[in-house]
Design a protein around this nucleic acid. Structure first.
Length: 413
RNA sequence: GCGGCCGUAGCUCAGUUGGUUAGAGCGCCAGAUUGUGAUUCUGGAUGUCGCCGGUUCAAUUCCGGUCGGCCGCCCCA
């Protein structure tokens, strides 16, 4: 038993659950397509260097959560912990992608992070992802958030989520603010929690969001980022907010919203919910104008987000039931052989038909009922001789005789 | 990485103040005569009581470890 257990933080997606998984991805894919985003995929592992440089050496994700290993050629590889770096790498590497900007892509797939699992947090988890490269305008921020809102809406969960946005400014004013903040906290070092003291150099903006009571008290007097945004950043953030309002997308300003990946600039946003436990961020992202240059590409603006498929699954209601199949139930060797051809002809017309491999009439109808079939086509020697079948409707229980060549229209009507 | 709770049939759970064959509901399987489901009735099987070790005459029950899940922190999707 213990040997057959999946690795901690991973799990099997059984058919019922996979159906909901596919429902989430399908909805996202459909909406993304409506906005002109094209789907693509990048490898599940990359050179470790890509993530170390892209995400930031000091971030939690890079410093303690990556699945990194050496392959047989002694290369250091890492299972991707997020999608953005890989897509930016592909953008830089594949010149054709740089020819028509902005590039708008949709992607989905597994991500890997060595974290302590709990509800909504696995070591292998799955994300849907949207990126726009080569668009420095606030219109891209607005659009990308709009795609997200529409996906959540299509899944029926938008009203259970709140959109929080913040501006992290450009590198210039962020550096200034960071310094001001570090100075402020340094003056209150003795009252800071242990967590926050370690955050002070690594990611001081995080302290603003601390849940520690003592930290909260200090935060009351902390300098605010809004006061330190330069004019460019201020204008940009205002344009994003105006656009969201114009698009009819509700949002809340959250000055404590700080994303943990180094590459973010300007807009940061999250759709959060209180319905699925502590891991309430269902989708989040932001702008990363410096990332592509940092990775060695041509200076190119970027913005995007990732959504946690498992978290979205927890929140959304059951997808529409699948179409009910028809079961073909032959009796005897001759009918069984004939049924194979009949079933195939019906499937070619788009009718879902299932045929058991064994069993008498009772067993076949029992199984038909179990798989929620809508009808059964019953064929024995008598029917074979007359070129007909008994068509039994499971909901009404009624059964009637139908000519074999009229089966398709009878089942469609 | 830190703190806490939990682990009994496929599922949801009860139970043993340590003591013969560990239970229920749902589900599953088989029957209620010849080629007809679901409903009803009758019968049946569920299981190393997560795993390893310790204490004990005796452990599923107590203790330790381990694996896994969950809750909070951290972090994030």
């Amino acid at each position: 038993m213990s040997k057959l257990q999946p690795v901690r933080g991973t799990h099997d997606l059984l058919p019922d659950e996979y159906r909901r998984f596919a429902h989430v991805v399908g909805a996202a894919r459909d909406v993304a397509r409506l906005y002109g985003y094209r789907e693509m995929a990048t490898p599940i592992f990359e050179f470790t260097e890509l993530f170390a440089r892209g995400i930031g050496e000091t971030t939690d994700v890079v410093s303690k959560e990556m699945y990194t290993f050496k392959d047989r050629g002694d290369e250091s590889l890492t299972l991707r912990p997020e999608y953005t770096a890989g897509i930016c790498r592909a953008f830089i590497f594949n010149g054709e992608l740089t020819q028509q900007l902005p590039l708008k892509v949709f992607a989905a797939g597994p991500m890997f992070r060595y974290e302590r699992p709990q509800k909504g947090r696995q070591r292998q988890f799955h994300q849907i992802d949207i990126e726009v490269l080569g668009a420095p305008e606030p219109g891209a921020d607005i659009e990308v958030i709009s795609v997200a809102a529409d996906i959540l809406d299509r899944l029926g969960i938008l009203e259970r989520c709140v959109l929080k946005i913040n501006s992290l400014g450009d590198p210039e004013c962020r550096a200034v603010y960071r310094k001001v903040l570090v100075d402020y906290y340094s003056r209150h070092l003795d009252k800071l929690s242990e967590d926050s003291r370690s955050r002070l150099q690594r990611n001081p903006l995080r302290i603003l969001d601390s849940k520690d009571e003592s930290d909260k008290a200090i935060n009351v007097g902390a300098p605010s980022f809004a006061d330190h945004l330069n004019q460019v950043s201020r204008d940009f953030f205002a344009a994003v907010q105006d656009g969201l309002t114009a698009a009819g997308i509700a949002f809340e300003l959250d000055p404590t919203l700080v994303r943990g990946l180094d590459y973010y600039t300007h807009t940061a946003f999250e759709f959060v919910t209180t319905h699925i436990g502590a891991q309430g961020t269902v989708l989040g992202g932001g702008r990363y104008d410096g990332l592509i240059a940092e990775l060695g590409g041509p200076p190119t603006a970027g913005i995007g987000w990732a959504g946690g498929i498992e978290r979205l699954m927890m929140l959304c209601n059951e997808p529409a039931a699948e179409p009910r199949p028809v079961v073909i139930a032959p009796l005897g060797a001759a009918a069984e052989a004939k049924a194979l051809g009949i079933a195939r002809a019906l499937r070619r017309q788009g009718i879902a038909v299932e045929q058991d491999y064994r069993g008498n009439m009772k067993r076949r109808l029992q199984r038909a009922n179990k798989i929620n079939a809508r009808a059964a086509i019953i064929i024995g020697d008598d029917e074979l001789a007359k070129g007909v079948a008994q068509l039994k409707d499971f909901d009404s229980g009624e059964q009637r005789e139908v000519a074999l060549d009229a089966l398709a229209s009878a089942l469609k009507g």
